[in-house]
Design a protein around this nucleic acid. Structure first.
Lengths: 359, 359
DNA sequence: CCAGTTCAGGAAACCGGTGTCATTACATCG
DNA sequence: CGATGTAATGACACCGGTTTCCTGAACTGG
């Protein structure tokens, strides 16, 4: 079937292995070794940066490898190493922007390193979800995995990965693992910033729309917010807090319940932008003008935030940077301390036009 | 360094290879062969569904493999086959929703097949972009790649992939390759549907905001729209057409120019939802009410469409299905006719609240 | 001057699968 | 009945790297 393509002249040293024009004939370690007149082991040493190679030999080989466009085959290398050069990205997340930002960020770091990113969506509510990820890791002999919320918050999964001796980085809003396994965005602090901002505008009666309980971020955001308020002498009565689901529709429903109360809160803090957009809809329906009659703040700075009218004041998470850092942590020498130097990032408030002093 | 883990009793058949509890000791083809008392070649035949194995032998081996939780190592297999079990997803696209939908769709198909999806963002405007993708394909010995617009429309890239003998599927809005390489969404027809809809509401004077020239989709959408209108006796004057850039900001700018004209168009068709959102903003600024004073239609049915107020009438592309089909086409036997049975999908109009008869 | 070290490098086995070709046992045929 | 064919299987090399272990040569130091 496939054409005979045994490397032609074993006796006559040819200048170039492949025709260069494209066809499969990639040079192998054997070609390089033969061309250089050394054993393949020496080439292997150069590839793996072994110090036990004479400088001249190394230079000669590096030049030759470059000339021939030789790159070691990751599959062969992986087979011998009993691992692969793949990193998994495990997610179960409705937020496309988040996922793509993380993966682009991770690839910022990975580009040129010989490592690649394999994506693995999953359903963290299904019973065999841990088994599925485990299989993924074992089968592909992954170098490591990056976990996005909410799977990043799953203790059983982390335990399984530890047992498998698999490197992993959890992206989360709260400290729930050793720092070398963690990228934390300080959601609590950012939510406090929101509280301070609204209070400084003069709002004393604020409605809060939280996220679903299976996200740790929602607790961080909600607590950070209420605690900052109480520090400033404002307590949130129970009926001013609605549990949403991080979805647009839940935002509409929660906001409608909050805005139906009398007196009405003068401002709303939704724990993500989707729900803030829902609050916009509820306000429109009631004929309330934002920001004149109602101030709204979101969280995430999704593209949506600037598309809404009026543009939404929200909290920006440096997501792409988190992706970059996650990959960097997986690539770093785990014994070195700077493996987790970048594990902490800080979100900040982006002020747009959705807030004003209360009427 | 690593513990001695040579399979212990070669004479005494043990019931289980690994301790099962998790550690690396995955069974190999040799373990299976020894346990079954056959040669590894026979096991290999079973793995590859060779018909040259006795039914009894096959059953015995399949049972054993299942008992041992044995799954062939893709790296070893790939090495021997001179290829891999990876599929690349190449994109250069600002639309996160699109990317994630495609990748989730592709993985719907791939799940359980032993194939995995490797993502590869790139910059289609950079000079060495084709070289980059080429390297990606060659190095990973990809089974195939899925190309998203606008890279799917790059002729040089397709040529390179053909030369490399690499399977690929282009996701595009127009017929620009053999059907086994193509998923086409019939954007032209959908745009015509928009035109018919607006005309039927009574609009005779419509503004059009197109996308950037380096996307084929924009041509399809714009032409489909204007041609359908002219079929109904409406011609679009030049000044009613604005070239946007598929971005929110460009939508704002284009819509502002269109709405500054007098008489003002009674409706706007933006070639994607981002720009339609921009049109909303322009209308708000001018104090125009949607849909009472201005009707707006978008394209894509991005999450944004239903978050806007009023909810945006737009065109839904079955993106996840396209992802599923793309993967299916890469997996199908290329000689079989149904390799491209699913290559054609149809978008359809989603009517919401952003359109009304003109005032 | 010679044993002991260190430095460079090589031979062969190995990672876990596949290809090629040979072998065996039986059925079929002239 | 022997020649031939065919189904089922195995032996062995090979894919492109790595590991383990070994060999020489060039330095030490006594």
């Amino acid at each position: 079937m496939t054409a005979n393509r045994k490397a032609a002249g074993a006796d006559r040293k040819s200048t170039q292995i492949s025709t260069g024009s494209g066809r499969a004939g990639q040079a192998t370690i054997n070609d390089i070794a033969r061309l250089a007149g050394v054993s393949k082991k020496t080439v292997s040493r150069v590839i793996n940066r072994s110090p036990l190679v004479h400088e001249d030999t190394r230079d000669k080989l590096l030049t030759l490898m470059h000339e021939q466009g030789y790159v070691p085959d990751p599959q062969a290398r992986g087979l011998a190493f009993r691992r692969s050069f793949l990193i998994g990205l495990v997610y179960d997340n409705p937020n496309a922007q988040y996922i793509v930002n993380i993966q682009n960020g991770a690839l910022d770091t990975l580009r040129g390193s010989g490592f690649e990113l394999v994506v693995h969506p999953c359903d963290s509510k299904s019973a065999d979800f841990v088994a599925g990820v485990r299989q993924f890791v074992v089968q592909l002999k992954l170098h490591g995995v990056i976990l996005l919320p909410p799977v990043s918050e799953d203790a059983a999964l982390a335990a399984a990965l530890n047992e498998l001796d698999c490197r992993y980085v959890r992206i989360a809003s709260v400290q729930l693992d050793a720092p070398e396994h963690l990228i934390v965005s300080n959601d609590r602090e950012a939510a406090a910033e929101v509280a301070d901002y609204l209070e400084s505008l003069g709002h004393r009666d604020i409605g809060l729309i939280t996220g679903p309980r299976n996200y740790r971020s929602t607790l961080e955001r909600a607590e950070g917010f209420t605690q900052a308020l109480s520090k400033r002498g404002i307590t949130m009565p129970k009926q001013r807090i609605e549990e949403g689901g991080y979805t647009f529709e839940s935002g509409v429903a929660s906001a409608e319940r909050l805005l139906a109360q009398s007196p009405r809160p003068t401002a709303l803090f939704a724990c993500n932008d989707e729900m803030a957009a829902g609050a916009y809809k509820a306000a429109y329906r009631l004929g309330l003008k934002i920001p004149e009659q109602l101030s709204v703040v979101g969280f995430d700075d999704s593209p949506l935030a600037s598309r809404l009218w009026p543009p939404l004041t929200t909290v920006r998470l440096p997501i792409r940077e988190m992706g970059r850092n996650a990959a960097a942590m997986l690539m770093a020498d785990p014994t070195s301390a700077d493996a987790y130097r970048h594990s902490n990032v800080s979100p900040h408030l982006v002020t747009r036009d959705s807030c004003q002093p209360p009427p």
